[in-house]
Amino acid sequence: MNIRENPWLLLPVLLAASLLVGGLALGMGEHWINPLSPGDDMASRIVWELRWPRILTAFAVGGLLALAGAWFQVLLGNPLAEPYVLGVAGSAAVGAISAMALFPDAAWVMSIGAFIGAWVGIAVVLAFAHLGTARLLLAGVVLAAFWGAVLMLLIALLPERGVVRAYAWMMGDLSNSLLPGWSLLLAWAVALACGLLLSLSLDKLLLGEKHAEALGVDVYRLRRQLLLLASAVTAIAVTAAGTIGFVGLVVPHLMRLLFGSLHRSVLIASAFGGGLLLIMADSAARMVIAPAELPVGVLTAMIGVPVFLWLLLRRTS
């Protein structure tokens, strides 16, 4: 067994590393005493109430984004597609920031606003689902531009300190998820299972809609299912952590380069790989300019892009 064949071996290593890094230097001993069971002392509370939830959130959100990215890429037949391509992130941000403007006193309304906003965006996109792929993509891009404009309008109207908060939310924040880590992990598992059930049809869709249909796929139904599934997953991820770019675009491609194009492997690999990338990025975000933090979205691109380009070059030569 080597890392190349079994990259999953990295998972425990990364988990351990991520548990160990943080604002407070907790010795290995403290972890080994209670690595998996909560205790009462400060170190154990930090691990259980601060680090584990954040790691779980990072893992689930990263996995969900990568799955949504893989789905959108096949659905739209476009390698440049990513979870936010149809404007779901934009409408979620509009929802979150409207909620913040309407109820500035409660922090949690932002998450609820994001979720409602995401579903409004999805409903609008679904109205275009019957159009062909190219027009669906076009409608999505235009909708994204629309939500972007609404967002700028809201930000222009917001009090100045609200803007700081809005920007911080839009750059992604894993530390304040309203949704508990275990529920995100559940969503991750359900999404992966749904994806695996559809994986053969997805493979056929890689040949184009006509070929897929000729191979017995009900393309119309599959497209609706995929659109709903990918959008729902994006909505959950955005609700939990704001918008974190790049994971959804690059992780599926990275996994195709490593494991081939068939969806059974691409989806499993993306669900884990996206999670791992986000755990890494988030750990780095906490460390690079400690005690201050960077927005995690910055780090996902900074870690992901070089890895991706390196693989791309190596595969083509």
Binding site: G77, D203, L206, S261
Partner: peptide, 16 residues
């Protein structure tokens, strides 16, 4: 049915 050549963006192999 054999029709237009399928797209190649996502890197399926001949055997796949």
């Amino acid at each position: 049915w054999q029709g237009e050549l399928p797209p190649t963006e996502f890197g399926l192999t001949v055997r796949q």
